[in-house]
Amino acid sequence: MIGAQRALAAANFAFTIGSGLYLTAGVLYFTEAVRLPAAQVGLGLGIAGVVSLAAGITVGHLADRLGARGVYLGTLLAQAAGDAAFLLATNFATFLVVVTVAASAKTAGFAARTPLIRHYGGQRPQEFRAFLRAVTNLGIAVAAPLAGWAVQVGTLPAYRSMVVGMVAASLAAAAILATVPPMRPVEGDGGKRWIALRDRPYLLLTALDGVMAVQFKVLTVAIPLWLVGFTAAPRWMISATMATATVIVVLFQVRASRGVDSPAAGGRAYRRAGLAFLLSCSLIPLAAGPPAAVAATVLIVAVMIHAIGQLWNSAGGFEVSFALAPVHATGQYLGVFGLGAGLADTFGPALVIWLCIGCGRPGWYVLGAILALAACTIPLAVRRSVTAR
């Protein structure tokens, strides 16, 4: 069991290095190296994000029926192929195809992996999932400077070497995953299609988790734009804010998840997260106006509070999504649960830009209130889901 956990963690680390390369400089590869207009890149990524949502449910269902390791292995190989095809993208049509394949493989891989986490995660698979999230952030931290090198050099060979690194990361993850013993499909009625889509209380939790997932765009979209456009803080503070949040998650995610050991505890963790997001979203606009040192301090404090909220948000999501999913349909249920975060990935950037940048200070307060309201609703939705079972 411990050996399987280590292999899954190592595979996750390898894969996340590739994901980190893409998250840091993937858009710039298509705009700077392929020379596609930014508007086309944004449109293509949005379409790919929507299409990929269906992949999570479908592949999660296949993982339940056919065995999770083989299906997850297939998604990693598909990810490697999709990333390699980036080198062939020369126009919008080919770009749209390759990013859709890559995005679908990534979403499908998350769904296919969840039965493995549940099977090999021991008595508390939620804690193992929290550990994997810490590993994920560590992998992104390793990848960021590598991608930064490609961006700094700015040549086509440099960007292509980054893509080769993405492919190598997925292949390495697949090779490591192959050492994990296969698991048989769990007996039960999980063979029935789309039972998760008929579970209304679980769908409500999925929707609320999707609202909460918008908070991830605060760090990656809203704060960088706010810092550059509205504050006197130096631009290098963008990296400092991301590094601060990453370090907090790497160091404390597992610890934050240990006390979240029931659906009710998961609901309370969500509620604490929402209040933390409300506080951080109330502090961030205060960085506009003061001198650079004060603005930087305000942003760091706000990011630290936001990162603590992320710890509770993730801990609550790990517990609720696993505990309320039938064992025989883990992949399908977690594939459905991923719809919320997938929609947040697709529409969240536009929402936070409209609220926080377009509306200014009031928009930050509105965003914080939305997150807090959703978080305070989740314990009621959890209670309803538990009762329905």
Rank of each mutant, 00 (worst) to 15 (best):
R65D: 10
Y72V: 02
R133A: 02
A150M: 10
N91E: 15
P185G: 08
A112C: 07
V186E: 12
A112I: 10
L96K: 09
P157R: 08
V153E: 12
T100R: 07
S170P: 03
G109R: 01
A150Y: 07
P115I: 03
A81I: 14
A84S: 12
L132S: 10
L77C: 13
L87G: 05
G109W: 00
K106W: 11
L171H: 10
Q126R: 08
L77M: 14
L132I: 01
A130N: 04
P157C: 06
I176L: 15
Y72F: 15
T114W: 02
F86Y: 14
A89S: 06
A111D: 03
P145N: 15
P185Q: 08
Y72L: 14
F128M: 11
L77W: 14
P115Q: 05
A84H: 06
R124P: 00
L96T: 13
A134L: 01
G165P: 05
L138D: 08
A81M: 13
Q79E: 13
V99E: 03
T90R: 15
A130W: 00
I176F: 05
A105P: 02
A111N: 03
G188W: 05
M166V: 09
V167W: 04
A63L: 10
E127F: 00
G121S: 04
Q126I: 03
Q123W: 03
L156E: 11
I176A: 02
S170K: 01
G109T: 09
D64N: 05
S170Q: 07
A158T: 08
L88P: 05
W149G: 06
A68R: 02
I176W: 01
E187Q: 14
A144Q: 08
G74N: 08
I176M: 03
L138F: 14
R113C: 05
L77F: 15
T94V: 13
G190K: 02
L73T: 11
A102W: 05
R65I: 12
T114L: 07
D189M: 09
A85Y: 10
Y159W: 09
I176T: 00
L146M: 15
